[in-house]
Design a protein around this nucleic acid. Structure first.
Lengths: 205, 205
DNA sequence: TTTTTAATTTTTGTATACATTTTTAATAAA
DNA sequence: TTTATTAAAAATGTATACAAAAATTAAAAA
């Protein structure tokens, strides 16, 4: 651990706490966020709280001083973006991914089959992250990163654990990238994300 | 005019002024941004200035307390995103754009041929905006919007006025959308943006 | 001269107080 | 009862002061 919380700024600390509370449902969608209230609760002044709220607004987790309540349409919008961007990233991965990253990708698949629930969750995230990085496009990486929290939030409310075939699909994508077949990798990634979206939508029915 | 400047918040005013100064080159890339200095210059306290600086950081116009100096790679990254997103938006436009918007689109082409330089610039922006809106995806609209300022900044430094064929390409895109040919519209939009990027890159050599 | 170290200055981070705006509640009119 | 109007309160926006951190400069050592 490089830095403990005391060493970080009040802004950073309060941001991390607030974000956490929103993502784990402690501050459910629709909750009014009042600067003074949060400030006294966390033991900081309003100034750093204000700043972390702005950050969360930027991330889409707070809108109009309330915790966001993502709609089905928000979910669709975010996934549509991911389909476009990660489809492209998968194509890049097929062309440019190094042996080392390819191996890391395979490890994610393996953990997906054998790991504990927590490990699986992490490995799935990492799988996508490796591919997104292969785009070598900082704007893209950043954009997808920002979208994650909203998607995560939605997932939480859906209590999504494990979708059937998810790991199989990851493995197919991995195989296409390994075979340097960019078009196939992109197509597989797109349908993988589409299936993910459909599963989410199905559950909230 | 719905509100004059005095009616807007200090944060909004200072944000608008700073953004303007960055985009028009008054604050060139690399300029150190010091809160206190800007504050006394604009006649506000540091508090609203801080906030507007954060906003500009989110927008990518300020990095590390300095005005951004976009690199060739930044330009490529932004355009690659636009190619993906606006290509998709053009496809949506072909399927869903209403007669009214279609007409507005055509007006942009007409102004592109007959208008003054300023009118042409505006019309070109509007052309893309109408199509992006057709995606009906708030996340996408927002993302593209944020990317505009950096692209604009780059353009400014390149002193880009009018690229050959730009309006012809717009017209072709318009025709494809009017003919409800989504695939063609998407392809044309992609090559249009690619040509735009190439032109920028060519000028900066 | 170059490199370190310490001192100084500048700049940012945070707390607090007050002003302005927005929201809520209460009262009066329809 | 519903709708307007106004008074109260709550919350946000802004200014200012001070503390902490970062950057700069000056002095000392290599």
């Amino acid at each position: 651990m490089l830095e403990n919380d005391r060493s970080r700024s009040a802004t950073h600390q309060s941001y991390a706490v607030l974000r956490d509370r929103i993502l784990n449902g402690e501050l459910p969608g629709g909750t009014k966020i009042v600067e003074e209230k949060i400030a006294s609760e966390l033991g900081f002044s309003r100034t750093p709280i204000r700043e972390s709220i702005r950050k969360l607004e930027y991330e889409g987790l707070i809108i109009n001083k309330r915790v966001v309540k993502p709609t089905e349409k928000d979910l669709r919008n975010n996934f549509q973006m991911r389909i476009l961007l990660e489809g492209y990233a998968a194509q890049c991965a097929a062309s440019f991914l190094r042996e080392q990253d390819l191996q890391a990708l395979y490890e994610c698949v393996e953990i997906g089959r054998k790991g504990t629930n927590e490990e699986i969750m992490d490995a799935n995230e990492r799988f996508h992250e490796i591919i997104v990085r292969a785009s070598n496009n900082a704007v893209m990486i950043d954009t997808i990163d920002r979208m994650q929290s909203l998607i995560y939030l939605f997932r939480k409310t859906v209590v999504l654990n494990q979708r059937p075939h998810l790991i199989d699909e990851h493995e197919q994508i991995y195989e296409a990238i390994k075979a340097r077949n960019g078009e196939k990798a992109a197509d597989l990634m797109k349908s993988h994300l589409q299936a993910d979206l459909d599963f989410c939508l199905h559950i909230i029915g």
